[in-house]
Amino acid sequence: MGRVVIVTGAGQGLGRAHAHAFAAEGYDVVVNDVGPAAETVAAEITAAGGSAVATSGDVSDWEYAESLVRTAVDRFGDLHVLVNNAGLVRDRMLVGMSEQEWDLVVKVDLKGHFCPLRHAAAYWRAQAKAGRPVSGRIVNTSSGAGLMGSIGQGNYTAAKAGVVGLTLVASAELGRYGVTANALAPAARTPMTEAVFADMMATQGAGFDAMAPENVSPLVVWLGSAEAGGVSGRVFEVEGGRIGLADGWRYGVRRELDRRWEVAEAGKAVLDLLAEAEPPTPVYGA
């Protein structure tokens, strides 16, 4: 029996590229999306000699996410990899953002990661407790916006920053069961980012397509492999031919007293700390 992967949001863009890349490596692929595109991608994989099944549904729905994991196990006998890729944007400045625009993005982009992760984790824990070997891999999709912030994307930034935090906790909690969790901050041309990268594509010459979503997939496939068992709790930036490790929050310079600070003292300490510290990476679009 080969390895089995679920790819959410696999009807187009990055998810479609990931699904095809896993299939090319011999994985059985569960292709998820909210519409008929999942069937199209599964048919493409099958026509190319691969193994795939399509399932349509909202990954932020608790019961559907549970059924998604069950589909993998019932159809292919096991589950080894969960690639959480489904997402959407509703860009607007904070002062004009509606409650519905906030709720929808956080629901799909953050809860839509948690629900499949939760049910996959429960499956792997049960396997481990039954004494069966587990080689579980979770690959979550964050964004440069989630790492640095992005003007006009307060909802998306919050959700994608939440994905990073969720990944760190999943790595810490699930390692005992043989499960790793990592996240990506990919840059690629997809239906969701076409407008963002339009100027970049206009200036790109012939040859290597640095914005092709297929450039991201080799890293995703490797992180899903049995060989990647020693890598967990990490965030990778990937674009074109570049792979980088993103360093997150860590303890920085400090000042300390053995008593409560006075207001003026606290202010001076802050200014001293800022003078010593590295400046933060600018918010995208600032």
Rank of each mutant, 00 (worst) to 15 (best):
V53W: 00
V53Q: 09
V53D: 00
V53T: 14
A54G: 06
A54W: 10
T55N: 00
S56A: 15
S56H: 02
G57Y: 13
G57E: 11
V59L: 06
S60H: 07
D61L: 07
W62D: 15
E63K: 07
E63N: 12
Y64K: 08
Y64M: 03
A65P: 12
E66C: 02
E66T: 01
S67L: 07
S67M: 02
S67H: 12
L68E: 04
L68N: 04
V69M: 07
R70D: 15
T71M: 05
T71Y: 01
A72P: 07
A72L: 05
A72S: 04
V73H: 07
V73Q: 11
D74H: 09
F76G: 02
F76R: 06
F76M: 11
G77W: 00
H80Y: 05
H80N: 15
H80L: 02
V81F: 06
V81R: 08
V81W: 07
N84K: 01
N85H: 07
N85D: 14
N85K: 07
N85A: 02
A86S: 09
A86K: 03
A86D: 02
G87Q: 03
G87H: 05
L88T: 15
R90F: 09
D91F: 12
R92S: 14
R92I: 00
M93N: 08
M93A: 13
L94Y: 11
V95D: 08
V95M: 14
V95Y: 11
G96P: 01
G96E: 07
M97F: 08
M97N: 08
M97H: 11
M97Q: 15
E99W: 04
E99C: 02
E101F: 06
E101K: 04
W102R: 04
W102G: 00
W102K: 03
D103K: 10
D103T: 13
V106N: 04
K107H: 13
V108E: 08
V108S: 06
D109K: 07
D109V: 06
D109C: 13
L110C: 07
K111Q: 13
K111W: 03
K111T: 14
G112Q: 11
F114R: 06
F114A: 05
F114Y: 15
C115F: 14
C115N: 14
P116M: 08
P116K: 12
P116G: 04
L117F: 12
L117C: 10
R118L: 12
H119D: 08
A120V: 01
A121F: 04
A121M: 05
A121I: 05
A121T: 01
A122Q: 09
